[in-house]
Design a binder for these strands. Structure first.
Lengths: 259, 259
DNA sequence: CGCATACTTGAGCGAAATCAAGGCCTGTGG
DNA sequence: CCACAGGCCTTGATTTCGCTCAAGTATGCG
């Protein structure tokens, strides 16, 4: 029985392919199949045969989660591996006494579950309603051998994430509260698809508590730093987690990007 | 002209292959060629032909650096990519005002320069005399297409480094000074080849200043925390950067490893 | 409209930074 | 062999940035 484009919904959850710098797996594997897709391709031949599609259907499936649902729990068997089709998630690690470190926010096109051993080393929680494409890690080798270009792309993605992680270490180890907030706002403003409205305001899907847990601060310090930036007329704080950057230049200077 | 095993010294600097969890590139490419090598292999066929060897000679060469020499400078063109054959190095990022964050210490078998874009995003400096195998990044694609198993292994390595980076973010963002020091000592004691002598003392190749820059502290705080652990009889501090762990259990408990 | 949750603001505190000596190796040269 | 210089490390005194505790104020939802 042939698998037609229609059946792709099993794996291609979001056909209105988003614009993201990191690649959407399905965009990558099926260039040209997703209408309006502008993600970078990874050099696969344009068309997949029925066998390829059946194979993909057998190793991947779509999933949805609501705000505050966790779909990866630290310590669990690392059986799956995800590609985000819609929404934003936070990844975090907890200490026994409740202290939490958010290691990253992941959005459309990002992969989650790459950095794992036999067990997941972080928890992943939806910050808003999310749609995912879930892969079985046990089939990963088979996926790679069928689509070798994908493996190459994943190495580039992992390398880039290492660069980002090193930046975050510099922030957490050496920057002041104001510098952390400024760095975050500048970095978030460089994400594609983060601008909420015509006003140019940033749409931050995370709470002050999440921001604090990401930047190694408390919610009070985050709040005070944001208020301080607002008083200096560098940003404006709107409702619904919206923040507008008024003076990107001075904000970037405050963020103390490394040499 | 054939390339014999002798000529491998160009790339295989250290034939007494070290025992390390992360793979030594040459061990990987030439399993069986390095006497006593116990590193994991990555599934290449046992023998390389002359063409392979000529190819390797053309893209890689050995290098040596002395203590405190830098061989990668943040911001420079990322032309090379290294595999460490001997010694330990620190990787760090600096802020304009001199604040420094060491993002990692790398030792025998580790790869350096993977996490880079067009330019290096960190500086690498030898902590002791080091020997390296240097690869031209522009030839990386050619290396991978000749040895596809290598690329697969690099993805696994990069994934593992992401796990380590996330642990470090938790440490930098949320742990106390004592917890940071305890975590570091426990982690370092799990490195292979780190035990200096029959006494079981750890050989730390880095100074207190390096430790401070790695753990997001000052040298005074590092010193006080070590003294505190010594007074609690959990460790003993010897000369020449040697530290013995007396009570690994309580030290591990103090380190507050995440759940 | 009322309650719960999230955010802001203020006051005081504390862990680690900064400032400042002082001690201890190690190597060098008399 | 000792004297001295220069790192590197430790220890103490003081300061400070961000945390904790505590209200108070929006915001959103039933």
């Amino acid at each position: 029985m042939p698998v037609g484009r229609r059946d792709l919904s099993l794996v291609v959850v979001n056909e209105q392919a988003p614009r993201r710098t990191s690649i959407n797996l399905m965009d990558a594997i099926m260039p040209g199949l997703c209408a309006g897709c502008e993600a970078r391709h990874i050099g696969l031949c344009a068309a997949l045969d029925d066998e390829d599609l059946h194979f993909l259907a057998s190793v991947a499936r779509s999933q949805s989660f609501s705000r505050s649902e966790t779909f990866i729990v630290e310590g669990d068997d690392a059986r799956y591996f995800y590609n985000i089709n819609h929404g934003t998630c936070k990844l975090y690690k907890d200490l026994a006494d409740g202290r939490r470190q958010i290691t990253g926010f992941v959005g459309v096109g990002d992969f989650v579950g790459l950095a794992a051993h036999d067990h997941y080393v972080f928890t992943a929680e939806a910050l808003e309603d999310v749609k995912l494409c879930r892969f079985d890690r046990r089939e990963l080798r088979a996926v790679f051998s069928r689509f070798p270009a994908l493996e190459r792309q994943l190495l580039a993605i992992a390398s880039h994430e290492l660069v980002v992680a090193q930046d975050q270490m510099l922030l957490l180890g050496r920057k002041t509260a104001i510098e952390r907030i400024a760095s975050f706002l500048v970095a978030w403003s460089h994400r594609e698809g983060c601008v909420a409205s015509a006003s140019g305001a940033l749409d931050l899907p995370m709470s002050r508590a999440d921001l604090a847990d990401y930047l190694g601060l408390t919610i009070e310090t985050v709040s005070r730093a944001l208020t301080s930036l607002k008083r200096q007329n560098l940003i404006d704080i709107g409702a619904h987690h919206a923040i507008s950057i008024i003076d990107a230049g001075r904000l970037g200077h405050l963020s103390n990007a490394d040499i």
